[in-house]
Design a protein around this nucleic acid. Sequence first.
DNA 1: AATTCTTTTGACCAACTGGTCAGGTTGACG
DNA 2: CGTCAACCTGACCAGTTGGTCAAAAGAATT
Lengths: 217, 217
Amino acid sequence: MLQTADKPTSKREGLRRETLALILATAERIFAEHGFKGATMQAIADEAKLPKANLHYYFPTKQALYRQVVERIFNIWLDAAESFDTEASPEDALGTYIRKKMEISRSHPYGSKVWANEVIHGAPIIHDYLETTLTEWTESRIEVIERWMAEGLIDAVDPRHLLYMIWSTTQHYADFSHQITTLNGGVPFDDAQWAQATECVTNIILKGIGVRRGVPS
Amino acid sequence: MLQTADKPTSKREGLRRETLALILATAERIFAEHGFKGATMQAIADEAKLPKANLHYYFPTKQALYRQVVERIFNIWLDAAESFDTEASPEDALGTYIRKKMEISRSHPYGSKVWANEVIHGAPIIHDYLETTLTEWTESRIEVIERWMAEGLIDAVDPRHLLYMIWSTTQHYADFSHQITTLNGGVPFDDAQWAQATECVTNIILKGIGVRRGVPS
DNA sequence: AATTCTTTTGACCAACTGGTCAGGTTGACG
DNA sequence: CGTCAACCTGACCAGTTGGTCAAAAGAATT
């Protein structure tokens, strides 16, 4: 583990990092559970076992805290987006991407919910991301998908709708987890169920767009 | 149009009905745009051009108003659920159901958003619906889908995941309309785009589960 | 040990919001 | 026309909440 030589992580800096992480993680959960307006600084402070004034020391306003939470989530989304390999075969590129998104739904359910909330309410905070990064990424992948279509590797489908289907289906398992748990007898998915869900979603989508599968490279 | 004979809709009754409808429609929009906590009675009153106290005359509390909004939405959902004909072929039953759900996403975007919001936040109000009506309906349709599988009309897939996919994909067009509009150049879908989206979603899902299509009955 | 900078915290405040209420208005009905 | 019940509404109130602040506590540096 290298460390920037002139910054040997003082006790202060370490604590600061820890506190920041604690606040952000707690805020993410509370925002996910109650929405932006429904979440109170007091509730976040209580859950993090910090005095409310301490939160305002690190984040001047509720909006600033919220914004950081959303930015963290966007980076996770970007990470998954990277796994959509434009060089790979449709099966590999889409399969990997879908699996990655399912993993995120499992590992970051709160983040996903915050993101969903934000978009449902008209994306007042993240509108710029949608117009810049998301639009660019989407267009680059549309090109790839259209190339696959031209090469006869998949059926002719509107790439946008394919992407929407992947987004909605995978995120559904995080955003609507309460509904899914209820229909699962009140018990959250276990490992096997997550694996099965991932496989099932991947299979239906890939088959649905006529991907030739299992073709050795 | 028949009318209950002994109730010739007095001026008062008519106005009452109109006011109730106005409040509910306005509330649905405001709740969709700001969430339960973010929506204020004052905002709903202003949008409906009524004094706030008048809202409280018709609905004693904010919760009561919200509950009615959610119940209305649930009835629309039930209406679509009915269109899942257990007697029809997989292609007809699922195709009709998907199309109906897409229509609802277009005609009731606010309702869909309120519902999504509610489920994301743990369904504090509608939990009973999920456990009773939704569970029963889901199980009845799972049986039908399993019958189709046994008869070789569709591939072997977990019926639950198929239903989740239909729900998430169709509702995505309502709940995430802001994202979709942004990726559509800032312009909402027109008639042709809605038709194309519906066709595309239907095709991918039906093909994805190996439905034999266009088979004459 | 003294000094300086960062961090922590309880007490406080102004703005907002759900809900109330008393009094006024309007339609129904004899 | 008079009476009554349903309906409407401005003014008000109590509880909540985001944010402030001054003072205390703690770390870093000399």
